[in-house]
Write a protein that binds this DNA or RNA. Structure first.
Lengths: 241, 241
DNA sequence: TTCGCGATAATGTCTATACATAATCGCGAA
DNA sequence: TTCGCGATTATGTATAGACATTATCGCGAA
């Protein structure tokens, strides 16, 4: 019976770590057939349910592929993905010990144009709350946010003044979402953006676009522009976590 | 007994979808206490193991928080994260029906400098395989990749010519990784980069830095520069998937 | 040889039960 | 009133057994 260090608390954790280690080390390469459940039962001296729980979890995480009758094999590495944390400005400022404030520069209710209609999947002319917000840390503009909020999905946004919390924070706490789409790209700041962010015209900026839906209904779109030299998106990721 | 559409195949799927729907719709807001397992048993007319499996999965996905004796509550929405797909150039080209090729512009083995040592967590002076690769689609430069490969972890990289596959693809297929770090930022192209990518000097570029480790041992670092107007990172994400 | 079909085998789901673990509640003592 | 400790209770883990589902294998017929 081969198990990991016995200091580890639970049986299924030991089995899981053991199998993960064999995959991660390359001992079991992609395509390698993993022992059948009844073989693992014998190897670890436990019931099938326990082995099954471990393998189901690994399958859900994409490390292995299971097929009835055929057995279980180590999965091919899939498309790489980058997981980036998107910080809440206020939280980030508090951690860094700096002062944060925001200012809503523009507010209106407008029907969306054709391009926005295509992006959001809504009919053109749908009424949207449009907000432009500048995020400032220690008197330095950190980001400029252009946001559309679907008043059909979030009618209470119309009455909100966005005095204590910026729109993103307010929405995150209020409206659950089921689907999100992100786009990241780089542009040269035009003169209007340069003036708002107090940077030179032409400076490279990072743009993060995020659209969220709730059960198919469009909720909000945010386009956040960061000066390239003042902000970067960072993420750490383990496939097994 | 309230269950979803009976067309759905499995009991635990129906229960899961039902609970997820109540959370996602806002009916059960963050902080709301979810019925105890024995209550859900009665509600759905099933065994505790089945309910437990559903709730454990939801907890693993971060939708709910469970504490012994205290019960289960809907979790506060955590820090938002963007999940971005990083395409393999060859695959992307094949899908788009365009021609793809790459060219290794530079290859050497060098000890890393102090800055790289800090980024990677290796002692300064460690020998690394350094590669610079240009990725070209339909004769248009799409990206410039600067890569370090740790020869202590991947010694066989030294003998690889990178003729059929670019370094990234080769590594992905060969070396499993357990941890990755990503950084995305924007810069203005300097004259050397502009020349390589056939863009105007000063054009905004997207930089994706990716570092991977295998069980604590550094594997590789890639710094990929995309012309901002030719490429963007895209990701779609559901919290429940 | 090839095709079709039934036997077989591996995973998928579910139940009933048992005991472990941890946090809370509430009672009784200081 | 407050503190500490034991009882209570909800979750966490594990087992054995049962049946469902679905590929695959291999045998027999065309």
């Amino acid at each position: 019976m081969r198990v990991g260090p016995t200091g580890m608390k639970h049986l299924h954790q030991r089995i899981r770590d053991d199998i993960e280690a064999r995959i991660m080390s390359g001992e079991w390469a992609p395509g390698h057939r993993i022992p059948f459940e009844h073989e693992l039962m014998a190897e670890y001296g436990c019931s099938r349910m326990t082995v099954n729980k471990v393998l189901s979890t690994l399958a859900a995480n994409g490390l292995i592929t299971r097929r009835r009758r055929a057995g279980t094999v180590v999965a091919e590495p899939s498309n790489q993905q980058a997981v980036l944390q998107i910080q809440d400005f206020a939280l980030e400022a508090a951690r860094a010990g700096t002062e944060y404030r925001f200012k809503v520069l523009h507010r209106s209710i407008e029907p969306i144009d054709a391009a926005a209609a295509q992006r959001t999947g809504l009919p053109a002319g749908t009424q949207m709350l449009c907000l432009s917000t500048l995020h400032v840390m220690d008197d330095v503009p950190l980001a400029f946010e252009q946001r559309l909020i679907n008043l059909a999905t979030v009618p209470e946004a119309d009455k909100e003044a966005f005095k204590d919390d910026p729109p993103g924070t307010w929405l995150l706490r209020r409206v659950p979402w089921t689907d999100a789409e992100h786009i990241v790209r780089a542009i040269n700041a035009d003169s209007a953006m340069a003036k708002r962010l107090k940077i030179q015209s032409g400076t490279a900026c990072l743009i993060l676009e995020r659209r969220t839906w709730q059960a198919g209904a469009f909720v909000t779109e945010a386009r956040i522009t960061y000066p390239g030299d003042r902000h970067q998106l960072v993420g750490r990721f383990s496939p097994t976590a």
